[in-house]
Design a protein around this nucleic acid. Structure first.
Lengths: 202, 202
DNA sequence: AAGTCTACCGACCGATCGGTAGACTGCCTC
DNA sequence: GAGGCAGTCTACCGATCGGTCGGTAGACTT
């Protein structure tokens, strides 16, 4: 794992932590390994982040802020909610290519959250989800979306996408190469068809 | 964590292991804790399963066999592929209620698999997935299903379901109680609508 | 020049990890 | 009754975990 050497140490640690937490999960990744990515001592990491939990929290927080901001930008740049969703699906796909760690960490967080969550007042991704359900509600108010339950629809859309993304390495390994190619090329098309048929009023 | 005391120790260990691996993942769960669920010593566990990896593998294998068998039974009991899929969705929902550990373990396995998989000849869930894509292919051959890519469709369907299931605890905690109720009550209805609109030829 | 701050280090801590060795116990078989 | 075997135990191992400690080098302030 390489990090950008021109960044401050604290930011490079966030990068390395994001990558290792994504690969191995909270328990599987050790702060020694994370520090080792920058060739610094573990105690130096603990100088920047007082505990492993805090470091993990900062990683989640950074991801959640970035993702929320991305959706807000889409909502501001276009008015039509149908186009907002199309752009959102494109964004999902781009991020799964450019920032593949995100999907892994988010899903791991959902799995581990019930055991850690009592310490957290507000969950990292509430804002993000509210932005997304906001798009649905707004479209429904204008009569161009069917009356689905916004939360269900968004969770299913995100699930359909993220599950495919985290499945990719497995598909690549255990299924024919042709199958893998088809999954990659047809995935977003299918997502768009799902949204179009299930949500958009004809 | 309680296990059924009338079962052989080896089976009770599988039960306990399934539960703990589901909750904490492979690294987060310790064989000490698993043995403690039965109030036996850790070395007694290692008498039944020679290593943590082997135990984990047995858990996965058992789950995969059960799930594959469930789908096979559906395929044998009804002929119409549309009805097979409807029953499969019902099965997904029932299992998410009765055997909530499964979804967690499967998703954790997909996340961790790339790092562990080199030791495995054949992936645990290949048969299961082939049964499911088989339903799609069979329906397409009979002209009652649209020409989607079977693998993409199945992965998206499974993803839409499993993501919602693993999100439930989080939704319950950070969203209004009413939202949680709506997600529970509308989830399978939405899945059925997804299949109906996206797959079935009208 | 003295004091202060940031960044970093190696040494060390208690706890826990997965796994091993050897002894004991009760049951079945010869 | 002897021997084997399955199942369980206590005791222990080396490795690694997250975290603390005292201290150092250098930049900046006053």
């Amino acid at each position: 794992m390489k990090t950008n050497p021109s960044l401050p140490t604290a930011d490079r640690l966030l990068e390395a932590a994001e990558s290792l937490f994504a690969q191995k999960g909270f328990y599987g990744a050790s702060i020694r390994d994370i520090a080792q990515c920058l060739s610094i001592a573990k105690s130096s990491l603990l100088h920047h982040y007082p505990s492993k939990e805090k470091l993990y929290g900062e990683v989640l927080n950074k991801i959640a802020l970035e993702m929320t901001e991305e959706v807000r930008r889409i909502r501001q740049s276009v008015n039509d909610e149908r186009e907002q969703l199309r752009q959102f699906i494109r964004l999902l796909w781009e991020n799964s290519q450019n920032k593949p760690n995100r999907e892994n960490i988010i899903i791991r967080e959902m799995l581990d959250n019930p055991k850690r969550a009592d310490k957290v007042k507000k969950w990292f991704f509430v804002d993000y989800l509210n932005e997304l359900t906001g798009i649905i509600r707004s479209g429904q108010a204008r009569g161009i979306f069917k009356p689905v339950v916004p939360e269900v629809f968004i969770f299913q859309l995100l699930g359909a996408h993220r599950y495919v993304v985290i499945s990719m390495p497995t598909v690549k390994q255990f299924f024919p190469a042709e199958t893998y190619k088809k999954v990659v090329s047809e995935h977003t098309r299918e997502l768009e068809a799902f949204v179009g048929e299930r949500l958009f009023v004809k």
